[in-house]
Design a protein around this nucleic acid. Structure first.
Lengths: 199, 199
DNA sequence: TATAAAATTGACTGAACGATCAAATTATTA
DNA sequence: TAATAATTTGATCGTTCAGTCAATTTTATA
């Protein structure tokens, strides 16, 4: 069964990716090395090179894994809702909840996005991925269809999409140890403000 | 005159910082080395270590320089306006304009913020600097005083401040071709949306 | 069971880096 | 001018790292 071998290799790849996420979260991209990832995964350095063509390749695969995790988390909650108003609210709430509960994933993703580069040496954070970023596509679709169904008023979906995604990312800058404004409070107030904006 | 010597040293420090910004923008933090900065500035590597206590110190000073540049650019335009409504509008417009015209500065700043770490090994982007970030203080002050003067309605200034700063940063993800037109279009639509949100 | 294929190890290589320092040069002072 | 201080050089050192490879172990096949 070549399928079984494939599953072994896939499991090993995922193990390595998960170890990468841990190391990235703990010590950041610049201190992350193949040998530290190998230690975390209790394997040898050579094995990483056996399953991935290099550090770049490993980081690219780790990034894809992280993006897919976040996307699945949010998409699943959005699909449960019926109206576009509800879909939008849950998009924001789920986005914020993911940042709060999967903080390590979020940090690892940032580390890669702001350090990794394409083979042409273009940093990921400058690559124009809008048309490939499925979360942006989903958000713009909610906004656009909500306008069509008259649930929302008149606005430019792309502009509002940028505002919303920025506000979700911005939750990272909330004070962490002050009770004054926790994530739930921010979530509630943000949703209210956004709804006001798109009437 | 120790003052003259001081000015020579200061000029050299600024020359090194400007070279750092160029190199950071060109090749990113991880590829930036003291020897590449030295080449760009046409000096020797040892001279950098003479004026800065190490790479970390140089990067921290470069970050402070960049933050101060942006702050001065925005603050100057805000202070020319009288009403808080106008101050808020020009804060957003100037923030976006800076991103558009000083793109290299913005990229260098991101490279440092997402790579540099404090001596305690805390990444800059996770350091709680809200109370030290003068632009945030300025923005929150505009929002708060605008509420006091009844120019704005009821909302949480901290939440709206995060939304606005996120929207300004988010301009980076606009399609880059015909950047100026897109940016002006985005600026106009963003200001309208924000004003709607804070009524 | 015997053979082949896949997976895994860990020591090793060459390159790049930050930092150091003795020596040389330039500026200041008395 | 002579002595002192500040500035600058560039070779060198020790370290870290990504990637390689011959050897070994594990798994699949016939």
């Amino acid at each position: 069964m070549e399928n079984k071998q494939y599953l072994i290799a896939e499991a090993r790849r995922e193990q390595i990716i998960k170890a990468s996420i841990e190391v990235l979260t703990d010590i950041g991209y610049s201190s992350t090395s193949l040998s530290k990832i190998a230690s975390k995964a209790n394997i040898s350095t050579g094995l990483i090179s056996y399953h991935f063509s290099g550090k770049e390749d490993l980081m690219r695969n780790t990034l894809m894994y992280l993006v897919q995790q976040e996307r699945a988390f949010i998409k699943e909650k959005v699909e449960q809702k019926q109206t576009y108003m509800e879909k939008l609210m849950v998009f924001i709430e789920a986005g914020l909840a993911y940042q709060g509960t999967k903080r390590g994933n979020n940090i690892a993703l940032l580390e890669i996005v702001f350090n990794g580069r394409t083979p042409d040496n273009v940093p990921y954070y400058l690559v124009e991925i809008d048309h490939e970023d499925e979360l942006n596509v989903l958000l713009k679709e909610i906004l656009y269809k909500g306008q069509e169904s008259k649930e929302f008023g008149d606005f430019d979906p792309q502009v509002i999409a940028i505002v919303i995604r920025g506000a979700i990312s911005g939750s990272m800058s909330l004070p962490q140890y002050e009770n004054k404004l926790n994530l739930e409070d921010y979530s509630e107030k943000l949703v209210k403000s956004i709804l006001k904006m798109i009437q």
